[in-house]
Design a binder for these strands. Structure first.
Lengths: 189, 189, 189, 189
DNA sequence: GATGAATGAGTCTTCATTCAT
DNA sequence: TATGAATGAAGACTCATTCAT
C-alpha cells in the first residue's frame, strides 16, 4: 500500500465530503479527483465507510494530540476555556463533514468517535476548571460543563448553517461573555 | 381527497423520517407503512419533497400559533424564556426529522422554514427581555439572545445525538442555571 | 350520455393531441381541460385509445363526405388532382395528431383507419384520372397514382417536421409542377 | 470500456428500437436482451438518449462516407439520382427507428441529425443535376430537388407504414418513372 | 498492488384504469 | 350517469461494491 496514495485519497475525500457532504460524494468522485482507480480505494479502505472512519480517526487523533500538549501552558482559566472551545470550533469549521448527519442510523462507530471528541473536550475543560477554582460541588461542576458544551455545539451548528463567512471575532466575544459570567459567578461565592 | 388518508400518510411519513431519516425513507416505505398505494401519495403531495413541505408547514405553523397565544400570560422573565426554549426543544424532540440536513443542498424553501422558526424564537425571547428589563444596550441585548439561541441549538443537537431518552428535568435545570445567570447579572448593574 | 359533453371531450382531446402529441397527453389533462371528470371520459370512450378511435372516425368520415360531394364539380384533371391533394394536406395541417406515430406497434386499428384515408384519396384520384384520360395501361395508372401518393406523403412529412409556417403557395407550385409533368406526358403519347 | 460489449449494446438497442419503437423499448429490455447489466449501459452511454445518439451518429456517419465515395463513379444522371435515393431508402428500411418521432419534442439534436442527412442527400442530388445538365434556372432546380426529396420521404413513409415486406423492384420502377420524367423534360427544352 | 468495466438492488416518478359514492 | 380518489405496473437513472486482467 503506497503511503502517498493512501494520503492523497484521504485528503481528496475530505475535501469532497466537506464541499458536497458525505452522501452526495460518490466513491467515483473521490477516485477521479484523486487520480486513482476506484479499486485502489477499496483496496485501501474496504468501503466508503472505511474512508470516513480513517478520516475521523485522523482528525480526532491529531486534535487530541494538539490539545494535550497545549493545555500545559495555560495560565488563566478564562483564556484556557476559550482556547479549548475555539480550537474545537476551528476543527469543525475546517472539517464540516465531521458533523454531517447522514451516517446516523446504521453506524454506531462514527457517532461514538465524534462523541469521544466531545468527551475529550469536556474532560479537558473539567481539568482547567479544577485547576483554577478551589472547590465546586459535583452538580455545579457538571452544570457548568454542560452549559459550555451546549454553547459549543450551538455555535458549531450556527457555523454549519451559515451561508456567509463566520465572524470569528464575534464568536470570541460571545464566549468571553459566557465564560466571564460563569467564572465571575464562581468568584462571587 | 380523503382527509383521513392525507393525515395517515403525513403521520406515517413523520414517523419514518424521525426513525430513519429523510433520505433513508423511501416513498415506497411510506406507502406500504401507511397501507396506501404509492400513487395516492403522489396524488396528495406531488413528490417526496412535497410530503416534507407539508410536514414542515404543519409542525412550524402549529408551533407558531401555540407560542403566540401562550406568551400573553407570562409573568416572570425567567419562566418566560425557559418556557419558549423548552417548547422549542420539545418540538425537535418530538420531530427530530426537523433538523435532518439531507435535503438542504438544492432546496432553499425548507431551510428557510426552519430558520423562520429560529427567528421566531429569537423575536419572542427578545420581546420577553424587553418587557421585563428596563433598558439594555443594543449589543448587550444581541449577545444575550445569541447566547440563548446557541444554548438552545446546543441542547437540541445533544438531544438529536442522544441514543438514550432525554432527561427533561436536567435540561430544565441547565436552562435555569443559564437564564438565572443572565438575568441576575442584568439585575446587578 | 350527454351529447354536449361527448363533443367537448372530443374537441379538447383533439386540441391537446395536436399540441402535445398523443403520448404526452394524459387522460388527466383531457379531463381537466374539458372540465369533466376522468370517469366520464372512461364512461364515454372506454379508454384513451377509444378517444383516439372516435376522433379518427370523426375526422376521416367528414373528410370522406366532403371529398365525395366536391368531386362532382371538377372540370379539369390538373385542378382536380391538385384539389384532392391540397385538401388532404390541409387535413393533416389542421390535425397533425393524425400522423402521430406513437400508436404503431400494438394497434392495427388506427393504422388501418389512416390507411383507409389514403386508399380513399387514391381511389378519388384514380377516378379523376379515368374521367379525363382516354386509356391508360394498368401499370402506368398504378405508377402515376403511386407517384402522386408518395408526393403527398412526402410533402405531408415536410409539413410535420417544419418549424416555420408552411408556405402553401410554394407547395401548390410544386404540385402544379409534378401534375403538369404527369399530365403533359400522358398527352404526348 | 469493452469494445465488444459497447457494440453488442448498440446492436441490441437498434434491433429493439426497430422492432418496438424507441419509446416502447425500455433500457431494462436492452440490458436483458444484450445480456448486460443496466449499469453497463449507463456507463457506456449515459442515458437512453445517449444510446440513440450513438446509434444515429453511427448510421448517418457511415452513410455519409459511403455516399461521398460512391458518387465519384457515376456516369449517368438517371442512375446517379436513383442510386442516391435508393441508398437513402435502404438506410431507413434497415433502420426504421431513424424515423421514429417520439423523442422529438424536447430534443433538437436528433432531429437536426436526421435533417443533416436530408440536407446531404439534397446536396448530392444537386451536384449530380449540375454535372449532367447544362444550365437550370435557380427556381427550376429548386423545384426538381424538392420534388425528389418529397418523393423520397413519401416512399420512406410508405415503407415505414408497410406491414408486409417492401417490393424494392417496384420502388425502383417508380423512381425510374419520376426521374425519367424530370430528366426527359429537361432534355426537351 | 493497481485498474476500471460490470453489476443490480434501490430510488423517485408517471399515468392508464378502476370503482365506491 | 358523473365523479375523482386510489391503484400499481412500468420506466429512467444512481451508485456502492466486486473481480478479472
Amino acid at each position: 500500500m503506497n503511503k502517498n496514495k493512501h494520503l492523497k485519497i484521504l485528503r481528496t475525500a475530505e475535501a469532497l465530503f466537506n464541499r458536497f457532504g458525505i452522501k452526495k460524494t460518490a466513491v467515483d468522485d473521490i477516485a477521479s479527483s484523486a487520480h486513482v482507480a476506484k479499486g485502489t480505494i477499496y483496496n485501501n479502505f474496504g468501503s466508503k465507510e472505511g474512508i470516513l472512519g480513517a478520516l475521523l480517526k485522523d482528525k480526532i487523533g491529531s486534535f487530541e494530540g494538539m490539545m494535550e500538549s497545549a493545555i500545559q501552558n495555560i495560565k488563566d482559566p478564562v483564556e484556557g476555556l476559550k482556547f479549548v472551545l475555539i480550537e474545537r470550533l476551528k476543527l469543525i469549521q475546517n472539517s464540516p463533514f465531521l458533523s454531517d448527519q447522514v451516517i446516523r442510523v446504521d453506524d454506531m462507530t462514527f457517532n461514538s468517535l465524534v462523541e469521544d471528541l466531545d468527551r475529550l473536550v469536556r474532560t479537558i475543560m473539567g481539568r482547567i476548571l479544577d485547576r483554577f477554582t478551589d472547590t465546586i460541588s459535583i452538580p455545579d461542576r457538571k452544570r457548568i460543563l454542560d452549559t459550555l458544551v451546549y454553547q459549543l455545539r450551538g455555535i458549531e451548528q450556527s457555523i454549519r448553517g451559515a451561508i456567509s463567512v463566520i465572524d470569528t471575532e464575534k464568536i470570541e466575544q460571545d464566549l468571553d461573555y459566557l465564560i466571564g459570567m460563569i467564572i465571575s459567578r464562581r468568584a462571587h461565592k
